[in-house]
């Protein structure tokens, strides 16, 4: 079982389990994207539940998940908990209570293709991959050791920049507070405080997300819309759907390490005019 707002990578793994004859249940979320702890506890207590999955923070809206409370419910039900820490590893302390933890090096500035899998002692674990004798039968084939060392070096370098996450979080705060003041008919999405430091998402009424992306790109900003990982399917983002918030006109800003306050200010300067122009072209007066 999992939350309805997990990353598509987790949902696809659940889909494989279903194709193999297993069952998957998804627990809904609040308007801000936080999983409902009561419903999660209820679902995990269903007899026969083999594994629960929960992200540390949502990848589209940044909302932190109540991992500690969910972990307590899993412990009580005797169900192992997989925590997907991809959004917060290297940015925030790891939460407690997981049985298996995953993360991805490229999210903290390491090389792509390096993942982290931590299996707590005492957790029953068997790799779904073909077995060979390496790495305790967890990963077949030869590891890319230079990339793994680079991932560790990038993590260390990131952690050494003590105040970078606070600085990014303050810039996200600036975007969250400014956008509703300068753009009419906009909804800033996700938790105000309990959120990842670097992600902010908002939706503009009456505007196509693709049009916003194109115009912002011309202005020099590479942002995302809806679900970056499934954008090609033309389905609305499953995260925004589960939250019951606007799925169109959606913009996600992910601040990279070193993003400057001047860039954020320029973004906030150009955004209102771009939204106004697109609305005018669509015949909307706001």
């Amino acid at each position: 079982m999992l939350s309805a707002v997990e990353h598509s990578a987790v949902l696809h793994a659940a889909g494989v389990h279903e194709r193999d004859g297993g069952a998957v249940s998804a627990v809904g979320v609040s308007r801000t994207g936080a999983v409902r702890v009561d419903a999660f506890a209820e679902a995990v207590a269903v007899p026969g539940t083999a594994l629960a999955c929960l992200q540390t923070a949502n990848h589209e809206v940044g909302t932190l998940q109540p991992v500690a409370e969910v972990a307590a419910a899993c412990r009580e039900a005797g169900v192992p908990l997989l925590v997907d820490a991809a959004q917060t590893a290297g940015r925030l302390p790891l939460p407690e209570g997981w049985s298996v933890l995953t993360a991805s090096a490229h999210k903290w500035g390491g090389p792509p293709g390096v993942g982290v899998l931590v299996v707590r002692k005492g957790t029953r674990f068997r790799s779904p991959l073909p077995e060979d004798e390496r790495e305790g039968r967890r990963v077949p084939g030869f590891e890319n050791v230079p990339a793994i060392v680079a991932a560790a070096a990038a993590l260390r370098a990131g952690l050494a920049e003590e105040h970078e996450q606070e600085r990014l979080s303050a810039l996200v705060d600036r975007i969250r507070r400014t956008v509703p003041r300068v753009v009419p008919d906009v909804e800033v999405i996700g938790e105000d405080e309990d959120r990842a430091p670097h992600i902010v998402t908002f939706s503009c009424l009456y505007v196509a997300g693709e049009a916003l992306l194109t115009e912002l790109d011309k202005a020099g900003f590479a942002v995302s819309s809806g679900s970056s990982c499934t954008a090609s399917t033309l389905r609305p983002s499953h995260v925004l759907e589960a939250m019951g918030v606007l799925t169109h006109g959606n913009i996600r800003v992910s601040l990279p390490r070193g993003a400057s306050a001047a860039d954020v200010d320029r973004f906030l300067e150009v955004l209102p005019g771009i939204v106004r122009r697109i609305r005018q072209e669509a015949g909307v007066s706001s």
């Binding site: 008919d185 909804e187 009424l205 609305p236 759907e241 019951g244 918030v245 606007l246 799925t247 169109h248």
Partner: peptide, 14 residues
């Protein structure tokens, strides 16, 4: 459009 299923109620709320 599947998006309308979510977005019309979201518009109502906003």
């Amino acid at each position: 459009d599947p998006a309308a299923y979510t977005d019309v109620p979201a518009w109502c709320r906003l």
